[in-house]
Amino acid sequence: MMDVLYFAWVRERIGIPREAVETQAVTVMDLVDELRAREDRYAAAFADITALRVAVDQQLTGFDAPLSGAREVAFFPPMTGG
């Protein structure tokens, strides 16, 4: 099981802030494809991944990053701090 977190408009589009996901995904992209196939709201949130950023176990990474041993994956738009 993996905790998948959503922030900002990704959270709004999917409708929940986090969920536990049963997955065999090898990379972040595999997980995205699994989520996209679930329901329209996921497909809408992940329609353009160039508009998204991802963190695996709270470290920013890329969509080709491996998920072996990962406990937490978070998807969100580019950050706007400061």
């Binding site: 922030f7 900002a8 978070a74 969100f76 738009p77 950050m79 706007t80 701090g81 400061g82």
Partner: peptide, 13 residues
């Protein structure tokens, strides 16, 4: 400032 603007996980609305 430059780094926390785009590398710290904050989102403004």
């Amino acid at each position: 400032m430059d780094y926390l603007k785009s590398r710290a996980p904050f989102w403004k609305r």
